[in-house]
Write a protein that binds this DNA or RNA. Structure first.
Lengths: 231, 231
DNA sequence: GTCTATATATTGATAGAC
DNA sequence: GTCTATCAATATATAGAC
């Protein structure tokens, strides 16, 4: 078994483990953003292993060595995208406020998530891709940060249920169902468009989805003493 | 630009475009199944481009040339998996019966989908992977077969709504929300487990999900004359 | 900072011995 | 049918000229 070749960047980091990164110039930041933008395009469609630096460089409109001048390794580009993503991803749920009333809070949470699916579909797909692969690069953040956040919000939901303001149900699966239904419009966009066709599949589909989901969750989660009908 | 090398299989097909494939022996079928099984493992996690023949061969417990003896090309393995998948995928929806009552029908549709997420998570992820990539290999089937099927079932739902048996709402987005919430437990399994933790994330999570979804859709879709509460 | 050229590893696929 | 050896293409990454 031949020894793995050591990368230049690795050697550098090993020599100066605490070297301070000097601040970037405007040009550098712009180029990096250009690359990250292109990488988001490619990674979100093909996943990490399915994407090539060549593709990213082409989308970014530069040569491969030039791209590697700004990001020494493919992994580094992906890492940067992922860490930026997680913050944005948790933000909408963080806003759910215990002092508010459940239906306005849940309603606007759904709206925010649906807007993210509409305005940042690539980010959604990047996240989905990572999930499908078993989340190797973010599993720890899921088990700590995400879990703690969801635990906290589940407590809020339980509180509303105890106050009789919300139907008694499983708060974790409630949150899952909001994630699933909203992200679906980004992750399965091709399928949604194919089913709705050209006429009904335009931008109006997000409005239709918002109306439908609002109704589903409003009626579905309204507290009641007796079941409205036997199945 | 050097000319693309022609594959042996291509040349063979070109020479005998209508050659009948002779029936497979038992051994051949077993080996092929072994390979397809392994390929499902790999493709469902990493997508087509992110998967290698080496990986598949290793999971199948055979050498790469040996694998290529049964499937001359990587693409062929994937194609076989996808065409088998689509039938299985449409089956649960096909069962929804216009002569039944809406809630038993919808309820058992949800159950079937949830069972598929539990029992065939790799198939679900294979499908999700294809969606994320823009469904290049199945887009036509989505636009024809899937669309027609959903149109047909949407008509059934609309019929139930007109009879006052089901809340008036968008039948297409209703179907999307069932797909999304059930497949979520296969496609985002890592996340579900991470959030629920070891104690609540066992096999019981599918039972919990079934209970929650049943309640959500039952209450959410029950017809009513006035909205139960202003948001 | 950007380019051409190139080193090195991996991958899809084939040849040919057994 | 299975294996070792190997080819050709592609991919990550580096060297060095400008």
């Amino acid at each position: 078994m031949p020894p793995k070749r050591q990368h230049k960047a690795d050697a550098k980091a090993a020599a100066h483990p605490h070297a301070k990164p000097r601040p970037l110039t405007r040009i550098q930041r712009e180029k990096q953003d250009l690359i990250l933008e292109a990488a988001l395009d490619v990674f979100s469609m093909h996943g990490f292993r399915g994407s090539t630096i060549d593709q990213i460089a082409e989308v970014a409109g530069m040569s491969k060595p030039n791209l590697l001048y700004y990001f020494p390794r493919k992994e580094e580009i992906h890492r940067r995208l992922m860490s930026a993503l997680l913050d944005t991803w948790l933000a909408p749920l963080k806003e759910m406020d215990a002092t508010g009333d459940p239906f306005p809070e849940i309603r606007s949470y759904i709206r925010r998530k649906l807007e993210m699916a509409r305005d940042f579909p690539r980010e959604s797909r990047l996240f989905a891709n990572e999930m499908l692969q078993g989340a190797p690069r973010i599993i720890e953040m899921l088990e700590v940060d995400l879990r703690n956040l969801v635990d906290e919000k589940a407590q809020i939901l339980l509180g509303w249920m105890d106050q009789g303001k919300l139907a008694h149900t499983d708060p974790y699966h409630l949150i899952f169902s909001i994630w699933a239904t909203t992200q679906h419009y980004a992750d399965f966009d091709v399928q949604v468009r194919a089913v709705l066709g050209k006429d009904r599949g335009g931008e109006g589909r997000f409005e239709d989805a918002a109306r439908y989901l609002e109704q589903l969750f409003l009626f579905g989660l309204t507290p009641r003493s007796t079941a409205p009908r036997k199945s």
